[in-house]
Every structure is written in structure tokens, then in C-alpha cells.
Amino acid sequence: MVGSVWAALGLSLTCISALSLISPAWFQTTTFSFGVFTYCSWSQGDRWNQSCGTFRSLDNIPDFAWKVSAAMLLGGWLLLAFNAILLLSWALAPKRLCPRRGSGPMLGVQAAAAIATIVGLLVFPISLASPFAKEACLVSSMYCSGQCQLGWGYVTAILNAVLASLLPMIKWPHVTEVQQRTILFSSDTQSIILMPEMSK
């Protein structure tokens, strides 16, 4: 049961992280928005009719800090996905195959994913000084969004990073196996004798 909960949390974090990465709403104006890998534009007052594009490779990303951020965020997402697959496999595997489910590399992988994501999120606002961001946000500079507003994609990525960094701190519950004892009643002495159960 505990393994299933952890697997569900890992899958949820992976899906939320993927959603924020493909979102074009990290910074937005009234007619333009951009994220790490996508950007969209629309005419004034007609937000439903958007024209969107993607940065298909790191070479197409307009700024070095943006490239570093994209690489870190993508690396964090890949680590989250690997961690989710590991959690899912441990949750679905029979107990006799994985007797020590609480140990292993998964807490380290989760922590590495959180660190990579946090670094990527901290580096991304440096790219607001790039020509691409300056054209979109007009007077933007490093860590200053100018006329752009913070979008839901960046906020979602921040919340996801917070959750991903908190989960490794919550350790797996340790199940202590209590040694079973056999209780014998002696009618001669009117006392109770406790004997450890013999292994079969």
C-alpha cells in the first residue's frame, strides 16, 4: 500500500513537471507568451486563436542561460521519470523479489531531480536579458520581467520543485517485525511461561 502511494506521488510529480515544461505560459504579455521550450502569440483580445512554436533543440534556444536552464530542467524531468518508473516497479513487484523496498537509490534520484529542477528554475530568469525576451517583454533584464507577467507554467514548475524537494525528506516508514511468542500455561505452578516461537 505504501509503495503504491509513493508510486502515485512520483507519477504525479513527473506529469506535472512535463506539463510545466511544455507550457508556453512562463512569462506573458497581452499578445505573447513564452516558456522553456514553447512560445505563442495571438492578436489583441483573441487569445483563443494562438499561433505557437517550439524550440526543437538547444541550438534553437536564443540565449546561453536559457540553454543551461532548459538542460537542467529537462535533466530534472528525466530523473523524475526514472524515479517514477523505479517506484512503480517496486510497488508492482512481488514482495519476495524486493524484500527491502525502502532502501535503494530512489531517494537519491528524487533529491538529484529536485536539485536539477531548482537550479534550472533559478537560471531561467537570467535569460530575460536575451534579445528574444527583450523583444517580447520590452524593458526586461536579468531577473526583471519588464512588461511580462509571471505565468502559470513557471509557478507550477516552482510548486513541483518544492514538492520534489520535500519528498526525499519524508523517509519510508520502517516496519519493525515483532518477534512472536508462544504463551504456555502451566497448571502446576499457576504461572505463564513465555517462549519465543521457533523458526520453521
Rank of each mutant, 00 (worst) to 15 (best):
residue 5 V to S: 12
residue 142 M to Q: 11
residue 137 C to M: 04
residue 91 A to P: 14
residue 134 K to N: 04
residue 177 E to C: 07
residue 19 L to I: 11
residue 61 I to E: 10
residue 144 C to E: 13
residue 120 G to Y: 07
residue 65 A to S: 10
residue 62 P to V: 11
residue 133 A to S: 14
residue 125 P to R: 07
residue 30 T to K: 08
residue 3 G to A: 15
residue 57 S to Y: 02
residue 20 S to Q: 02
residue 135 E to Y: 01
residue 93 A to S: 12
residue 51 S to Y: 07
residue 143 Y to F: 13
residue 175 V to N: 06
residue 70 A to F: 03
residue 104 G to F: 07
residue 175 V to C: 03
residue 191 S to D: 04
residue 176 T to H: 06
residue 140 S to F: 08
residue 82 F to T: 15
residue 196 P to E: 03
residue 75 G to V: 14
residue 29 T to H: 09
residue 163 L to G: 13
residue 147 Q to D: 10
residue 62 P to Q: 12
residue 152 W to M: 02
residue 70 A to W: 04
residue 108 G to E: 10
residue 66 W to D: 04
residue 105 P to N: 10
residue 48 W to K: 14
residue 196 P to C: 01
residue 188 D to A: 07
residue 113 A to R: 04
residue 143 Y to A: 07
residue 54 T to E: 06
residue 11 L to W: 12
residue 158 I to F: 03
residue 119 V to A: 12
residue 3 G to I: 10
residue 147 Q to P: 07
residue 4 S to A: 09
residue 198 M to W: 02
residue 103 S to W: 01
residue 153 G to A: 08
residue 25 A to V: 10
residue 183 I to T: 05
residue 13 L to G: 06
residue 37 F to V: 11
residue 74 L to T: 15
residue 151 G to L: 07
residue 94 P to L: 01
residue 200 K to C: 08
residue 192 I to M: 10
residue 52 C to S: 01
residue 165 S to I: 02
residue 96 R to T: 09
residue 51 S to K: 05
residue 43 S to M: 05
residue 121 L to R: 10
residue 97 L to H: 03
residue 114 A to F: 06
residue 104 G to I: 15
residue 13 L to E: 13
residue 148 C to W: 05
residue 198 M to V: 14
residue 49 N to L: 04
residue 200 K to V: 11
residue 94 P to G: 09
residue 174 H to Y: 03
residue 137 C to D: 04
residue 165 S to W: 02
residue 5 V to Q: 05
residue 66 W to F: 09
residue 101 R to T: 12
residue 8 A to Q: 01
residue 106 M to C: 12
residue 123 V to F: 02
residue 35 G to D: 00
residue 42 W to R: 15
residue 91 A to D: 09
residue 139 V to W: 07
residue 167 L to Y: 04
residue 52 C to R: 00
residue 147 Q to S: 13
residue 126 I to D: 02
residue 193 I to S: 08
residue 41 S to K: 15
residue 85 I to A: 07
residue 66 W to R: 09
residue 155 V to H: 00
residue 191 S to Y: 01
residue 89 S to Y: 05
residue 109 V to K: 03
residue 55 F to L: 06
residue 158 I to N: 02
residue 138 L to C: 00
residue 35 G to R: 08
residue 142 M to P: 02
residue 121 L to A: 03
residue 151 G to D: 08
residue 54 T to Y: 03
residue 107 L to C: 00
residue 98 C to W: 07
residue 8 A to E: 01
residue 18 A to N: 01
residue 161 A to R: 03
residue 187 S to G: 04
residue 120 G to C: 05
residue 18 A to K: 11
residue 126 I to T: 15
residue 66 W to I: 04
residue 5 V to C: 13
residue 162 V to K: 05
residue 161 A to G: 12
residue 171 K to E: 00
residue 106 M to S: 14
residue 106 M to W: 15
